[in-house]
């Protein structure tokens, strides 16, 4: 019996999310009295794999096979399911991101397991196995029981702290023996965005709405974003008007993000917009209209003109950085 956690890598490296999800798996395993096995697919150096032990992984299964680079959903799911079977995993955990969402549903079918996605925090109980998640795009929470023997869950980023529980970790090579016929995805072209902070990865996000009045007024926001190492976002009307690219649209039908800090300039806070950002740790609103609904969802606010506030913020952040 074990808890299996799928730890993806980014060009051979793990990041905060990897340690967060292993910490989360270790906490569940502790409650269940079982060990934690991490599964890594791709070329990750042994030292990097060992780093998962710091957060509670007892064992790391290491799959080194270039064929998985195409991220073929079917083959990846098959590999994870085989690892789960060989470890007699009772709980299989993925991150609730592009890769986790792509594979977890397939794995759940293979393992005859119930699936809950976007789990926030530790299970309410492990026997019966009840987890909590946001539903209605952040407008409510649900407590959901998984009734099958094996459980598959995806874990919502930023919903558990990284906890160090140094553990001796064994690294084992693992060959899931997937035949060539399972790999059907052919990558024709890859376009990587460089030199920009990825929105879904950013710890701080600077966002502009219709109150910014036009695309020519984004200079200040971009400067502030750069100083803070922030990702840039916008509301739906802004991307619909073509002021900013659709890539930056956050909201119920755009990207759903959960940064530590979300700074909203000239965004009124329609319910659909809040649905995409209400998992942020802190929301700050700058808006002319004191009645704007964004203030109800915010932790800090300024009622005022964004164009007067932005230069002050830039100056204050520069000062802060100079004094660090």
């Amino acid at each position: 019996m074990s808890v299996l956690v799928y730890t993806e890598n980014w060009s051979g490296k793990f990041k905060k999310l990897s340690y967060e999800i292993v910490s989360f798996a270790a906490a569940i395993a502790k409650e269940m009295g079982s060990p934690v096995t991490a599964l890594s697919i791709g070329h990750v150096a042994d030292d990097e794999l060992k780093s998962l032990g710091k957060y509670g992984a007892n064992k790391v299964l290491n799959v080194q096979d270039d064929r998985f680079e195409s991220l073929d959903n079917k083959a990846l799911a098959d590999a994870v399911a085989k690892a789960a079977e060989s470890e007699s995993a009772k709980v299989v955990i993925f991150a609730h991101n592009n890769e986790g969402k792509a594979i977890a549903p397939r794995v759940s079918v293979k393992l005859n397991a119930g699936l809950v996605t976007g789990v926030t925090g530790l299970p309410v109980s492990v026997d019966p196995f009840v987890v909590r998640k946001k539903v209605f795009t952040g407008k409510a929470f649900a407590n959901i029981q998984i009734k099958t023997d094996v459980k598959v869950i995806t874990f919502a980023q930023n919903s558990y702290e990284v906890v160090e529980t140094p553990t001796d970790t064994a690294i084992e090579a693992f060959d899931p023996q997937i035949s060539d016929g399972e790999f059907n995805t052919v990558v024709k072209d890859t376009h990587l965005i460089t030199g920009k902070v990825l929105l879904t990865d950013a710890e701080i996000v600077v966002s502009g709405g219709r109150g910014m009045k036009g695309p020519e007024n984004w200079g200040g926001l971009e400067e502030l974003g750069e100083l803070l190492g922030a990702g840039m976002a916008c509301s739906r009307p802004v991307s619909d008007e073509g002021w900013r690219s659709h890539e930056e649209h956050v909201g119920q039908t755009g990207k759903i993000i959960a940064p530590n800090l979300y700074l909203a300039f000239g965004i009124s806070g329609a319910i659909q917009h809040l649905g995409g950002v209400n998992s942020s740790k802190y929301i700050v609103a700058i808006n002319k209209d004191p009645e704007a609904p964004i203030f109800e969802a915010s932790d800090y606010g300024i009622v005022g003109d964004a164009f007067k506030v932005i230069p002050q913020l830039i100056e204050a952040v520069k000062e802060m950085k100079a004094n660090k």
């Binding site: 759940s108 397991a113 119930g114 699936l115 809950v116 009840v130 539903v135 952040g138 407008k139 409510a140 929470f141 649900a142 407590n143 959901i144 029981q145 998984i146 009734k147 099958t148």
Partner: peptide, 11 residues
């Protein structure tokens, strides 16, 4: 069904 929604809560 393999899962069951037990209860809901508003934030």
């Amino acid at each position: 069904a393999r899962t069951e929604f037990l209860t809901y809560e508003l934030p």
